[in-house]
Design a protein around this nucleic acid. Sequence first.
DNA 1: GTATTTAATTTTATATGTGAATTAAATATG
DNA 2: CATATTTAATTCACATATAAAATTAAATAC
Lengths: 420, 420
Amino acid sequence: MSRQLAQKPTSSRYRVLDTIRRHPNISRVELASLTDFSRAAVTGITQGLLDASLIVETPLADGKEGGRGRPRKMLDINAEAGYVLGIKLSLHQMSFSVTDFTGNVVHTMHLPFRGNQNCDVTLDIIEMGIQRCLKNADIKREKILGVCIGIPGYVSHETGMCHWSPIFTERDIPVARLLQERLGLKIFIENDANLVTLAEHWFGEGRGLSCFAVVTVEHGIGMGLVVDDDLYRGANGIGPELGHSKVEIDGRLCRCGQLGCVEAYASDYAILREADVEFSIDAYNENPKAYHETISKITERARNNDEHLSAVFKNAGKRLGQAVANMIAILNPQTVIFTGDGMRAGEILITPAIEEARRLKLSGDKNETEFITHIWGDEVWARGAAALTLQHIYAEPDEKQNFSSSKITGSTKLKPTKRA
Amino acid sequence: MSRQLAQKPTSSRYRVLDTIRRHPNISRVELASLTDFSRAAVTGITQGLLDASLIVETPLADGKEGGRGRPRKMLDINAEAGYVLGIKLSLHQMSFSVTDFTGNVVHTMHLPFRGNQNCDVTLDIIEMGIQRCLKNADIKREKILGVCIGIPGYVSHETGMCHWSPIFTERDIPVARLLQERLGLKIFIENDANLVTLAEHWFGEGRGLSCFAVVTVEHGIGMGLVVDDDLYRGANGIGPELGHSKVEIDGRLCRCGQLGCVEAYASDYAILREADVEFSIDAYNENPKAYHETISKITERARNNDEHLSAVFKNAGKRLGQAVANMIAILNPQTVIFTGDGMRAGEILITPAIEEARRLKLSGDKNETEFITHIWGDEVWARGAAALTLQHIYAEPDEKQNFSSSKITGSTKLKPTKRA
DNA sequence: GTATTTAATTTTATATGTGAATTAAATATG
DNA sequence: CATATTTAATTCACATATAAAATTAAATAC
């Protein structure tokens, strides 16, 4: 069991790279004060990173006027130091994205796909998709530092196992190991909501926050949690969940078989059910495309003041707010970020949710939890996949220069043989 | 703002001390393998700890037969390396306990006390109590390594501030600083539920678990959470809570002013209310002793099959179980430990709670959350206070032998006058 | 009594860091 | 315009923590 990133990494290399990432166009002196390293140490560490081409010296950015004294030499992450392949599995398609070393998406590709198939078939498609994506993006395989796959369901990042997912018919699949054997690339897997959460932390509304929750509203209600600047992964690597907390004991039937889960009130299938649309709970699996179209149609009608439908959305929102209020009452995060496809419904769902969550909040509470809604682009999960992979790359030890090569590399950098 | 233990400590000293604590009567070789230090490093580090008298060499414990080869020299925490003073503030009394360096309680003392008084008065009593407790225990002040105070309410360990507590009339009191100034001792403060949680982690049912929740049932419903072997302290240092999560939207009135909180169903005042006892919500503050006696009486009657009362307890338990089920659905901890004074009600409250929590659990879930009930002794919080203080002591750097004492102090430590 | 085994320590080497002094490269000033 | 000043970055000397290998220590097995 190759433990992946069991501890939050604290190597000097990680700290410096992470600080440069969060403060682009930074000087060594600023780095020293932000990282609490001495200037001397920063010189050494950045030299190593420059040698490895992970960072580059860049001109002083506009607006940062230089005063007196020796001008600062600014540093930045080298976007071309390598690339990350992010893959998202969902029930109706696979998405492939290549991001550069700063987490920017440089190429995206979608493959049609029917989930809930045999594991080998799915892995075949993934493998094929990776080849095609790299070819389309015109990126050499050697430049890929890692592949990260976002999977809905119970996924343990640490062990690389997928314990259960709607994507696979089997349980407990060692996805990371199997793909590593097929491809010879570093493979990471993670729950899809966690990837979104990580993306918010690195690039989105969670920047600078050390304790916040993300609520994703889509086909189901997902959740991610950052605690102490780290993803909360719960026991056995199974992270936090919101969808199956109860908003009404023994209430509506949920697709999990339980009664009263918030998903049974606020997810898209629950909304369809309340809207009296003739879709069964399994309709999504049977024809995801038609399903999505129906959702869009209904959302549009609710927006246009269809009385019944807007009441349905409002009530779904209230129920979501109740679940979120409970989560806040328990965890007291700084901020709750709402995101996901369901945000397309916009105010008709989220405004009632936030109102209800505020209404149920302990009054007189000093530390007000802040609510943010964030309509994500399709590439958010890919940036999360990049962030997760880059965390690992940042944490790797410097690869020592192999001085034994051919050329007599001159004296400049060679240490004089120790002890005269 | 002196940050207290912002990061989980990882100094070699901490790792070794913590490992010895968790594995009493351990040899250096075992230490090396458990800590991942080399044997050489362990020799050095333990030597330093022996010099500082924080650990001692002890004879091989029974049952650990020595085979061939050089016999192991076993190590243990030196119980007499120093003492910790733990103080618990509650509305009707203050408790003072002295624990030794292993966290064993060596002396306990209670002072009658009426909470909700002026801060200065309370601090006076604390100061007086500390003096008296040390005298009674016959422990010299110099042997006290730190004082840790458990306070109900919103307490930030990191800043030493008490933002709100039923104990004080004022808000935002820098308790740690004020007492430090009065006493010249290291002062730590922490939420009382967190101390119980820490005690479970170090000494109780949480040993060896890295992610578990503690639910305390007393006058209110409290909660503590250990994530990744560390106390979860939420945003602004305000930790997790369970009491004000809702089990019925717009249900019963809670003393917090909200409707439907689990406290309004399962705490002792809620039980009194349901039992139709003529106690107001404020009765506790007015006469805690009589209040406790009433609770005991009612509990006894319910145990003896008073039909109405046992239904009241059963329903309270179910409500508690519903809140716990939601907490589990959200956080997915390995284990939930029930504890607190309310455990005296025993099966008539907790059995229905656990049954209800199990009933509402996502079925087919691989990782079953385990439920444990733990009837604590009165000294649990004191051991938590000890654990918290010892964490800090463990993390301190070794105090270097001061070689400069009498002999020719000379130039060694003096900085040369700047710039020759 | 000697070989073997296991534990602990010592020795030597190395990595990583700090603080002080130095070097570098600009602006400010008389 | 030469020089002082300022700020950034680097180099140097030293401290510390750790590991790997060799050595010493203390027991049992034969």
